[in-house]
């Protein structure tokens, strides 16, 4: 109860604080530079030069402290020892290059980068194309989209149940092993099979992200001018040809956006690995490695170095996004 009161109180204080700030700041600005009197013109232009910054100030402060400042501190920390007390030069990066877990993480991250965006986009495209053609398509879409709302940890529980292994001679309650058994195969401890277990982890993220890809690609497909499709029908193209040669080329831009969005997510993926294998059996990834060194290793230097590697990997996408955004604003 106490906690609810406190939470409620903070909501009120926080929200009112925000509103009060904006309101008061505007009032003060209008009082200092009134839009009346002999110097109205000069006052108006001065006030309208200041006002945008009043509107932006809280956002700039939050972004600056919570997203920009850490980048520089991380660079600084990555050049220092575990407790951040002594300068060690590039020692942390040297250690990284030689660390087998780091290499494993890099390899796994590249696997994830190759497989997850491709598979999610592919399934999303297929789902979008198929559901747009049937009457209960919207229901189907909602169901495929639903995993989007499930947390990575929740999804991990769901899928761990699917991969569950009981051991020979006992009734299998994991769906995958039960199916394998029914088909006459032998049960496996799926999450402990080296290399391939990575793909079983990826399945979770693909399962979550396909809905996202489907929703966006479906909108893009519907945005294609109907006339181009009708022209292709008159030209004698089959439905598959229409899809591959008329529709898909027209939505390349959207496919690229979906792909990059999922790519960024993949680089940050952490919860799934932590919850399902905690990086054992050769499934470590960068984000979880960083978490390991931060909490279990208590080594701010090495953890920051790993984090910076992730940052470097997303940088090309960041630059591409900014370039695109600038093209649009112009």
């Amino acid at each position: 109860m106490d906690q609810l009161m406190m939470a409620g109180g903070t909501i009120v204080v926080g929200v009112f604080g925000c509103v009060a700030y904006f309101f008061a700041a505007n009032l003060i600005l209008d009082a200092v530079y009134p839009a009346k009197g002999p110097r109205a013109g000069a006052n108006i232009s001065r006030a309208s030069a200041i006002r945008p910054w009043l509107f932006l100030l809280p956002a700039i402060l939050l972004l600056g402290i919570y997203l920009v400042y850490p980048v520089f501190v991380s660079i600084w920390l990555s050049l220092r020892d575990a407790s951040g007390e002594e300068f060690v030069g590039l020692a942390n990066y040297e250690w990284l290059v030689n660390d087998s877990k780091f290499r494993e993480s890099i390899r796994n991250n590249f696997l994830w980068l190759l497989v997850v965006p491709a598979a999610s986009t592919f399934f999303g495209l297929v789902a979008a194309a198929l559901t747009d053609r049937i009457r209960w398509g919207n229901l189907a879409k909602a169901l495929i989209f639903m995993p989007m709302a499930i947390s990575f940890v929740g999804a991990s529980v769901i899928w761990k149940f699917i991969y569950d292994y009981r051991g020979e001679g006992r009734e299998e309650i994991g769906l995958l092993n039960a199916v394998i058994e029914a088909l006459g195969g032998t049960e496996q401890t799926w999450l402990a099979i080296p290399f391939w277990n990575n793909f079983f982890l990826m399945a979770v993220l693909i399962w979550i992200q396909t809905g996202f890809a489907m929703v966006i690609l479906s909108a893009a497909l519907r945005g294609i001018p109907e006339e181009t499709v009708e022209a292709a029908v008159l030209d004698g193209a089959s439905p598959l040809q229409i899809f591959l040669r008329i529709k898909v080329p027209q939505i390349w831009g959207t496919i690229a956006v979906v792909w990059t969005t999922i790519t960024i997510l993949v680089l940050k993926v952490f919860d799934i690995v932590l919850a399902m294998t905690n990086g054992q059996w050769g499934t470590q990834v960068l984000a979880n490695l960083m978490f390991d060194w931060m909490f279990r290793g208590n080594d701010a230097g090495r953890a920051s170095a790993v984090a910076l590697v992730i940052m470097v990997l997303v940088t090309p996408i960041m630059i591409w996004n900014i370039a695109n955004a600038r093209k649009e604003t112009r």
Binding site: L67, P70, V73, S74, I264, K268, A300, A307, M311
Partner: peptide, 17 residues
């Protein structure tokens, strides 16, 4: 442009600082 850039900054970077 800065806002677009910050969209993809990995959280991992921000945790320790």
């Amino acid at each position: 442009a800065a806002v677009v850039g910050l969209l993809v900054v990995p959280l991992q970077l921000a945790l320790i600082p």
